[in-house]
């Protein structure tokens, strides 16, 4: 699958100097609203020769170059700063966008997380993006969408960086019990029954120890901290888009068992003893499996096995 050259992964960290806003779409028609933005299109490689000290920025051309995908990354847009790539994706979703469009932001001022958590990552240090996918997934397998993406992120970190990434059911990506990333999905039901999924992903890549958010629900870390060296974000972005493309085609082909199997293997939650809130009741037991539509199977203290639908169950922290 991925052509990994590990020597390429560690790069020298550069100072953040340039302040120019930058966004660019590589292919396809430019959505109308983009023209109104305050960004200017420029050529990043040219920019680099002019500014040798410029930080390693995400450049649509570099990400697209040699990208081996069928859908994911068909069009790539990067923003220097935005409120949330989800907000941009919502506007794009209403246009005739190219399936697989990806919107990256170098910095988000209102990065989203559910339950009041905000996702903070300093500029140029993370991979923050939203991927737009058209897909009419059967409703009872909707929950597998999160698993598909979580599996892709975890697998990419493992295969390209050899770091022991794991999934905390359903959507957190951890290394050594610390959170390095996560996924949130918004489902836009469109007219003519065409569904659009906005897949939001946040990954701490080159964030240093001092830049990590404090007082988070889970302790945080970054790939660079775990790898003991800066990570090439463009290379990682490519690898991640390619892996999501692979798993998305598995989801599209409805090989659901293959997804749950991989999810289960990468999920630290399986085997843990925990308390689940399901509607108003609480159940404590050991997680023995992930069900075929993404729910959790719990062996309760009284020996009975109970399956919790992913849609209603939440892990009590």
């Amino acid at each position: 699958m991925l052509q990994t050259n590990h020597n390429n992964l560690v790069i020298n960290s550069n100072k953040n100097t340039g302040k120019r806003t930058f966004h660019k779409e590589v292919t396809g028609n430019k959505p109308e609203f983009l023209k109104m933005g305050n960004g200017t299109n420029n050529n990043q490689s040219q920019n680099r020769t002019l500014l040798p000290e410029a930080p390693e920025r995400l450049n649509p051309e570099e990400i697209t170059k040699g990208l081996k995908t069928r859908i994911v990354g068909s069009s790539i847009i990067t923003y220097e700063q935005t409120t949330s790539t989800m907000n941009i994706a919502k506007r794009i979703a209403r246009t005739e966008f190219k399936n697989g469009t990806v919107i990256f932001a170098e910095e988000q001022t209102q990065g989203k997380g559910r339950s009041g958590n905000s996702w903070f990552c300093p500029r140029y240090k993370g991979l923050l993006f939203t991927l737009l996918l058209r897909h009419n997934i059967p409703l009872d397998h909707l929950c597998l969408f999160v698993g598909t993406i979580a599996v892709s992120i975890t697998e990419t970190i493992r295969e390209t960086l050899q770091l022991p990434a794991e999934i905390k059911w359903p959507n957190d990506i951890l290394i050594g019990g610390k959170k390095v990333g996560g996924v949130l999905i918004e489902w836009e039901k469109r007219v003519k029954n065409q569904s659009v999924f906005l897949v939001g992903i946040g990954l701490n890549v080159n964030t240093s120890e001092g830049e990590l958010p404090e007082h988070t629900h889970l302790p945080a870390t970054s790939l660079a901290i775990e790898k003991l060296g800066a990570v090439d974000r463009v290379f990682l972005a490519k690898a991640l888009l390619q892996d999501i493309d692979k798993w998305f085609s598995i989801l599209k082909d409805e090989h659901f068992g293959y997804i749950t199997e991989r999810w289960k293997n990468l999920c630290i939650t399986v085997g843990e003893t925990l308390t689940i809130k399901d509607c108003d009741a609480e159940y404590t037991g050991r997680v023995i499996d992930i069900s075929n539509n993404g729910g959790l199977m719990l062996k309760l203290d009284n020996g009975k096995v109970k399956i919790f639908r992913g849609e209603h169950a939440t892990i009590k922290s």
């Binding site: 559910r114 909707l142 929950c143 969408f145 949130l184 999905i185 918004e186 039901k189 992913g310 849609e311």
Partner: peptide
């Protein structure tokens, strides 16, 4: 409506 980190407006 939220189901396993999938939000639907």
């Amino acid at each position: 409506i939220e189901a396993m980190k999938i939000m639907n407006e």
